[in-house]
């Protein structure tokens, strides 16, 4: 029966509103159940874990984004499922009703554009903020980071990549160099990542830290340790034939144990430390061959901003002082 409106004869009996309301209601109920369940039960166990503030930030970001994705997927599945059940061929006689409803519906169109735009822009804004805020992505922030940790005394650990090995220098402890990456618990860490040859990438997955190691470049990544345990370091830039063998292990240990280890290593490695160049943010080795040498770029004047944070020495002093006070 026509109600006199143009095309009203094409309108399905009962109109479209009940269908949309039903679909929305089913989706809302499913989302209200599945979203919180995933966020609360699965989310806390998502990688990369909670060994550091950056890792926790990554895990939380992943939790939020995955929960949002679940809600979107439920919306799509609910729509598909509703259509399959409601308008399956055995329940509809003849061809599906189209007419003007098949040519467009302003409410549906605007709703679709609005909802998808909000979802995409919301995730874009969320992701952008999470990349910037402290302990966000934990990636390399470069030599001039947009934010620095609130603490003035992060432990500086220099990551030196070379084909095909990572070594680490601890400037707060005499600048000794080692293949062991040991970090104190509940401490702000400033990783200063550089390379002696090609481009490498320092990827400590469980720490939520990933920073490219470029020659002549001091790439900075911050994090704060918050859980004891072991982690794996891998090179994540294809850097030559033994790239696959360029991995290492590290540990987060209690502060007292770290200080004990660092002090012992400083003393034990003193014979080789005295052969190393003075600590610098980058080093400029010869580009070709073994006859290189290992020159601090600061000493050659190629890098002028050699002390961007001015806190290299203070961490060790403060930490040692703290240890003495505790003792």
């Amino acid at each position: 029966m026509s109600d006199g409106r143009p095309g009203a004869a094409d309108e399905p009996r009962g109109g479209h509103a009940p269908h949309l309301i039903r679909i929305f209601a089913i989706w809302a109920v499913l989302s209200a159940i599945a979203g919180p369940l995933f966020y609360l039960l699965v989310g806390p166990h998502l990688p990369p874990g909670h060994m550091t503030s950056a890792a926790s930030g990554d895990a939380w970001d992943l939790n939020v984004v995955t929960t949002m994705a679940i809600i979107v997927v439920l919306g799509v599945w609910t729509y598909f499922g509703y259509c399959l059940v409601t308008w399956r061929s055995s329940r509809v006689v003849g061809e599906p009703v189209v007419g003007r409803w098949g040519r467009g519906n302003l409410l549906v169109q605007t709703s679709w554009i609005t909802i998808t735009t909000l979802a995409v822009m919301g995730l874009f804004v969320f992701g952008t903020i999470e990349l910037i805020v402290p302990a966000g992505a934990g990636g390399g922030e470069g030599p001039n980071p947009v934010w620095t940790p609130h603490t003035k005394n992060p432990l500086v650990v220099q990551v030196i990549a070379q084909q095909w090995l990572f070594t680490y220098r601890y400037p707060s402890f005499g600048g000794f160099e080692t293949t062991q990456l040991i970090l104190p618990d509940h401490t702000a860490i400033a990783f200063h990542v550089t390379s002696l040859d090609v481009i490498h990438d320092f990827w400590a997955y469980q720490l939520g830290v990933k920073a490219d190691a470029n020659p002549d470049y001091d790439n900075v990544a911050y994090t704060t340790t918050q859980q004891l345990g072991h982690f794996v370091v891998r090179c994540d830039e294809l850097c030559g034939i033994w790239h696959g063998a360029m991995f290492d292990y590290g540990s987060i240990v209690p502060k007292a144990k770290f200080l004990s280890w660092a002090t012992a290593s400083e003393n034990r490695l003193a014979p080789v430390t005295k052969l190393l160049p003075p600590f610098a943010w980058t080093y400029t080795p010869s580009a070709n061959g073994a006859g290189g040498g290992f020159y601090p770029a600061c000493a050659t004047g190629q890098v002028t901003n050699c002390d961007p944070f001015g806190n290299v020495a203070t961490y060790g002093g403060a930490a040692k002082q703290s240890a003495h006070e505790t003792a």
Binding site: L165, T167, E177, P271, V272, L275, A290, G293, F294
Partner: peptide
């Protein structure tokens, strides 16, 4: 020659 990284002059370094 001198090393690119003198640390590798230590026995057991790598």
């Amino acid at each position: 020659s001198p090393l690119r990284n003198e640390y590798l002059g230590l026995v057991g370094a790598a």
